[in-house]
Simulated scan of single mutants.
Amino acid sequence: MIRIVVIEDEPLAREHLVELLSELPGVAVVASVENGRLGLAGIAEHQPDAVFLDIEMPGIKGTELMHMLPDPRPSLVFVTAYPQHAIEAFAGGAVHYLLKPISRVGVAQALSRIRPKDEPLQKEWLRLPVRKKGATRLLRPEEVEALVADLGDCMAWTPEGRLPVDGTLAHWEERLADRGFMRVHRNALVRLDAVLEMTTEDELVLATGRLVISRRRMDEVRRTLGL
């Protein structure tokens, strides 16, 4: 369980960040406060694993608070609208720097910096945020058969239809590398255990549609599928 303190002076931004963190398994927000003074008190009381904090706050700024923490320090993730502080933040030991407006993908990336990649919970956390009927749904990787780049958007092929997903194809290729997904074309990732058939026209048949395999990927795809 990752125990987190959130320090953010804007009430709506603080509430949104807490909501995104609380959606993820293995995460507990143990304190949520509006300024650096209360943040220092919350860190001392709860001894969290990580702190998500704003930079521009009344009183103690986030970059000032960073230098006031005794060792061993929690992992620090800055959440700010100001990109110009990134060098100072990383020089002070921050593990991640989130620019507002924040997204589920950004929060998941931050959490991946806090725990090592071989942490079992990394796989449990991973969700693909898709948009459907004005809401954002979080799908497990096994609920998605393919991810396809379409005119700049990334579409998740699912039994419920083809749904827009936050994040680029390159981002998801990295995140899903150990979840059975493989690049079969410059515009497509496929979950290999969703493949039903490979046609003589070099297409992969899925329950949700067909995808062409590029020539440069053909040998690797065939080898991986045992063909």
Rank of each mutant, 00 (worst) to 15 (best):
F90R: 08
E119D: 15
L192C: 06
P25H: 06
K123S: 15
V18P: 06
R137E: 12
V184D: 02
R223F: 08
E197R: 12
E203P: 09
R115Q: 08
H96E: 14
E160C: 07
R179I: 00
L21V: 03
G161I: 11
E143L: 04
V107K: 09
I102Q: 13
N35H: 14
V205S: 09
E145D: 10
H185V: 11
L21A: 02
E88Q: 14
R104Y: 12
E220Y: 03
I87K: 14
G39V: 00
R140Q: 14
I87D: 12
L111V: 09
R14K: 08
G92C: 10
T200M: 13
V95H: 05
R113S: 02
R217C: 10
E145C: 03
G36F: 06
N35C: 13
K100I: 03
L192E: 03
V130Y: 03
R222F: 06
D9S: 13
F52D: 03
G59E: 00
E23P: 07
A86T: 01
D178L: 10
R210W: 01
E88S: 12
H171S: 09
G92A: 15
A89F: 09
E64C: 07
G226D: 06
R140I: 08
I55R: 04
F78R: 00
L139Y: 09
A156S: 09
G59D: 02
G93N: 06
L99H: 02
R183L: 05
I60R: 01
C154S: 14
A108W: 12
A81H: 00
D49K: 15
T168P: 09
D202Y: 14
K100F: 04
V33T: 07
A28W: 03
K133Y: 10
P116Q: 01
R137L: 14
L76M: 07
A177Q: 11
E34K: 15
T208S: 10
R175W: 12
C154E: 04
S22G: 10
P70C: 08
R37T: 10
H16I: 12
S103R: 12
R183G: 04
R140S: 14
V95T: 04
R104W: 07
W172T: 08
K100N: 02
R179Q: 15
R131A: 09
S22R: 04
A31R: 06
V144A: 08
G106P: 02
D54G: 03
R175K: 12
N187Y: 08
S75G: 10
E8G: 06
S103I: 11
P129E: 00
L128G: 01
A108P: 00
E8T: 04
Y82Q: 05
A31T: 01
T200S: 15
S32I: 11
L204Q: 05
M66K: 00
D9R: 12
K61T: 13
I7L: 04
G26Y: 07
I102D: 03
R3T: 05
H67V: 11
P11L: 04
A81V: 00
V105M: 07
W157G: 09
G161C: 10
M182T: 02
P48M: 12
L169I: 13
V107G: 10
R216N: 11
L211V: 13
V79H: 01
A188K: 01
P25R: 03
P159G: 11
V205R: 13
L138P: 04
